[in-house]
């Protein structure tokens, strides 16, 4: 146990936790924006997989990471348009259509990978962007200031999303259609347009989440996301539909994952408990959610389709 409390191991674990939380944060913020407008998207995982594959394929084919990021975002945006058409225009049941998007993303990304890549190959990874001066601080620099641009961007997104939802008319309208679409509609707000926009933004962020994951690893495999999209949905509830709350959940999950892996590597967790301990991040997150349940107040019109009569 004492090995864990050496500064090197502690701060490396912190760095790993922040890295692991990045996809959760992007996807969770995106899902939160969609849910604020009243639309639940269970297809986050599928969107992440599709974006991850196409970003990876782009990086592999062109060698350009920036183009890969752009493609990953565009795939997310495209899936947002598709999901918007399904749920907002055609009023399909959100839960089922979200699962459909997930299954499509899982299967199609696998198929495309096998058809176009096959044997796993590494591509360039996102380089570490060292923040001048701060990155040189012993230990702290490694933990907080030597991450990829995507990781910094994820955390910068938190105040941006807060401002978007709290300080802009657009954000106010999104919240209005998620709480009381009839009232919003009577005030001249286009519920369909607001929800469609929120879905597109949310899915684009899910696409960025998948892109961040794959470019951090430099390799794609079928089912690469390994359930992270679903965890991101849960973190929205954990975060009580607030951006800082989602960030706290993402960090908690990532840090617990990183701690468990480090403890396994150090032999602190005995091998007999190895598989059980893999559940720790989810168990702790659910536990925290139970404790914080009083804060949980979802958008009143969440999952409720809207049509003008």
């Amino acid at each position: 146990m004492s090995d864990f409390f050496t500064a090197t191991v502690l701060f490396s674990t912190l760095a790993a936790g922040i890295r692991l939380s990045t996809p959760f944060l992007f996807a969770g913020l995106g899902e939160m924006i969609g849910q604020k407008s009243g639309v639940l998207n269970l297809g986050v995982e599928g969107v992440m997989l599709l974006s991850a594959f196409f970003a990876y394929w782009t990086a592999l084919s062109t060698g350009s990471l920036w183009l890969a990021v752009l493609v990953g975002m565009l795939v997310g945006l495209l899936m947002g348009v598709v999901y918007g058409l399904i749920t907002v225009v055609f009023h399909a049941e959100q839960g089922i259509s979200g699962i459909g998007i997930f299954l499509f993303g899982l299967g199609f990304s696998d198929l495309m990978f096998q058809e176009n890549v096959g044997t796993p190959k590494f591509t360039s990874k996102l380089p570490s962007v060292d923040i001048p001066l701060l990155s040189d601080i012993p230990h702290v620099g490694v933990a907080f200031f030597q991450h990829s641009a995507m990781t910094y961007t994820a955390f910068v997104m938190v105040p941006l999303v807060m401002i978007l939802l709290r300080r802009t008319t657009f954000g106010t309208n999104i919240r209005a259609v998620g709480e009381n679409p009839e009232s919003a509609d009577s005030l001249g707000v286009s519920v369909a347009r607001m929800r469609f926009s929120a879905i597109v933004i949310g899915n684009t962020l899910a696409g960025v989440a998948g892109t961040a994951l794959v470019l951090e690893l430099g390799i794609f495999q079928p089912n690469l996301t390994a359930g992270r999209g679903f965890i991101a949905i849960a973190l929205v509830y954990f975060g009580a539909w607030r951006a800082p709350g989602v960030m706290a959940g993402a960090l908690l999950y990532g840090l617990v994952e990183a701690t468990v892996i480090t403890w396994k590597a150090l032999g602190i967790i005995p091998r007999s408990l190895s598989d059980i301990s893999a559940m720790a991040p989810a168990v702790i997150t659910i536990g925290a959610l139970v404790i914080l349940a009083r804060r949980v107040k979802p958008p009143a019109a969440l999952t409720q389709p809207f049509s003008r009569h």
Partner: peptide
């Protein structure tokens, strides 16, 4: 010989972090 079971056959990110932790160790 430090042995780390990630708890998943498919989680590439966790395998990467496990390798990082082992190297740091």
């Amino acid at each position: 010989v430090s042995i780390t079971y990630t708890g998943s056959f498919g989680d590439v990110a966790l395998a990467a972090e496990a390798a990082t932790a082992l190297i740091i160790n």
